[in-house]
C-alpha cells in the first residue's frame, strides 16, 4: 500500500530560552486508507505530533511528507489550500462556529474554496448529515445542540471536501461511552466506505484496540507500534 504520510526525524522543541523538547526523532509512515490510533500519557506529545502532521504546527527539525510532497517547500497560502482540500480536522472541543447552523458549519470548508454551493454539494452535505444521524437538527444553530451532536457535526464538516486524511484529537474525549461507541462505529464506516485515512488520538484503550494500528507515544518517542 502507498504511504499517504511520512515523518522523518521529527524533533519539536518549545521555548527559546528554557528549552523543552517534546518530540525526539520521530519517524513514522502511514498507509493510505488505514485506520490508526495514537495513545499515550497526558503530556507525552500526542497533540503536538498531530498538529505537525496537520501542518498547523512546524517541527523544529525533520520533514513532513504528505502524498509525496514535503510540507517545508510549501508557502503559507499553498498550505492553507492544502489543508482545505486534503485534510479534515476533528478537534477535541469540536470548534463549530456558533454564528452558523449545523448545516452551514458543514458547508464552511467547501465555501472556503468556492464562492457558490452547487446542488451536488448540498446533496452531499445532506447525505453526510444523514450519515451522522443529524437530519432532524441540521438547521439548528451550532450552540443549540448537545456535545455529542456537535461532535458529529464536526465529523460531517471534516468530510465535506472528501479529504484523503482525517486527523482527530480525542474526538470523543468529553462524551459518554455509548456516544463514543456510536462515533467510532461511524468513523470506521467512513473509513471502509470512502477509504479515508484516519489518525485518531484517544485515551480509551478499548477504542484504540479497534484500530488497524496502535501507536504509543512515550516521552516524545514512539514506544510501541502495533499493526494488526
Amino acid at each position: 500500500m502507498e504511504n499517504i504520510l511520512e515523518l522523518r526525524n521529527i524533533n519539536k522543541i518549545y521555548g527559546t530560552e528554557i528549552k523543552n523538547q517534546v518530540l525526539y526523532d520521530v519517524n513514522l509512515k502511514i498507509n493510505e486508507g488505514s485506520f490508526n490510533s495514537i495513545i499515550g500519557q497526558s503530556g507525552s506529545g500526542k497533540s503536538t505530533l498531530l498538529n505537525i502532521i496537520g501542518t498547523l504546527d512546524k517541527p523544529t527539525s525533520g520533514d513532513v511528507i504528505i502524498s509525496g510532497k514535503n510540507v517545508k517547500d510549501m508557502k503559507l497560502d499553498q498550505l492553507a489550500e492544502y489543508r482545505n482540500s486534503m485534510i479534515g480536522f476533528v478537534f477535541q472541543f469540536h470548534y463549530l462556529l456558533p454564528e452558523f447552523t449545523a448545516m452551514e458549519n458543514v458547508l464552511i470548508p467547501y465555501r472556503i474554496g468556492n464562492n457558490k454551493v452547487s446542488n451536488e454539494i448540498r446533496r452531499r452535505a445532506d447525505d453526510l448529515m444523514n450519515l451522522v444521524g443529524l437530519e432532524k437538527v441540521k438547521n439548528n444553530l451550532a450552540t443549540k445542540m448537545s456535545g455529542g451532536q456537535q461532535q458529529r457535526v464536526a465529523i460531517a464538516r471534516a468530510l465535506i471536501n472528501q479529504p484523503k486524511m482525517i486527523l482527530a484529537d480525542e474526538p470523543t474525549g468529553n462524551l459518554d461511552s455509548d456516544s463514543t461507541e456510536v462515533i467510532y462505529e461511524l468513523l470506521r464506516k467512513i473509513n471502509q466506505e470512502l477509504k479515508t485515512t484516519f489518525i485518531i488520538i484517544t485515551h480509551d484503550r478499548r477504542i484504540a484496540e479497534k484500530a488497524d494500528r496502535i501507536i504509543e507515544i512515550k516521552d516524545g518517542k514512539i514506544n510501541l507500534d502495533i499493526n494488526k
Partner: peptide
C-alpha cells in the same frame, strides 16, 4: 479569534 483560528485550520488564507 477562536472562529478565525478554526477557519484558518480549515484552510482560509491569511488575506481572506
Amino acid at each position: 479569534s477562536r472562529q478565525v483560528g478554526i477557519l484558518k485550520a480549515m484552510g482560509i488564507k491569511n488575506k481572506v
